[in-house]
Design a protein around this nucleic acid. Structure first.
Lengths: 110, 110
DNA sequence: ACTAGTACATAGTAACGCTGAATAGCGGGG
DNA sequence: CCCCGCTATTCAGCGTTACTATGTACTAGT
């Protein structure tokens, strides 16, 4: 992964995962695979698990342990009320940033 | 500044400053003031100066020392060829990110 | 027994932005 | 004169994040 994109992901990756969890509950391994599908070519598994631990400790998600037929039990995460509020704040901040950058980008071709 | 936005700025603030410098050369104090104007209400001065040192050491900008009538001499930064290339890469990465997030945000109201 | 695929966890590292303080030059008011 | 306020830059120390690399554990197929 490019160093630039890695830095940009800081703070954003969390929002991406929370947004995904708003749509449907999911577990770490699944999320990693989905991200790779989306073009985040080599996001390390460790990154996702660490992130999930963080958002769990902050009380943004509920966790349920679900046995799997193909390996160790899955920890299925789902967004709770606090997580939804946090996600909304994320979108507000994201909008703020994109607006500023859009302006900058347009001003460019003057 | 919100913690969320602080994290989102990582990697992005650098692009913002480079994009600004593409438009016109500027010095640290000026850049800080401009950012505050743009709504980045309390970006620390120290942050900008550290960032400027970084991009200078990476050879993305040229520096010229210009005496000031109102204080110590200014270090005026201007984007060079390498910096312009780096900025283009930044915009590519930024586009990638915004596209992914736009998709996620739309999928939300389903 | 060995391998591969599934699934989670963690210690150590690097990079970035923030906090808080220090330094330095110049102007004007008490 | 001296201190205050504005301009302008610098630096040490901190917290957070994503990456690297490795380890654990369960199941199925050979």
């Amino acid at each position: 992964m490019g160093k630039q994109l890695t830095e940009m992901l800081k703070g954003t990756l969390e929002g991406i995962v929370l947004a995904l969890l708003l749509g449907r509950p999911a577990y770490g391994y699944e999320i990693t695979a989905w991200l790779r599908d989306q073009g985040f070519s080599d996001i390390a598994e460790g990154t996702i698990y660490a992130l999930l631990v963080r958002i769990e400790q902050r009380g943004l998600v509920d966790v349920e342990k679900v046995p799997s037929e193909k390996g160790p039990p899955r920890k299925v995460y789902s967004l709770n009320a606090q997580g939804r509020a946090y996600l909304e704040e994320f979108w507000r901040n994201w909008s703020f940033l994109t607006e500023r950058l859009e302006q900058l980008r347009e001003g460019e071709q003057t």
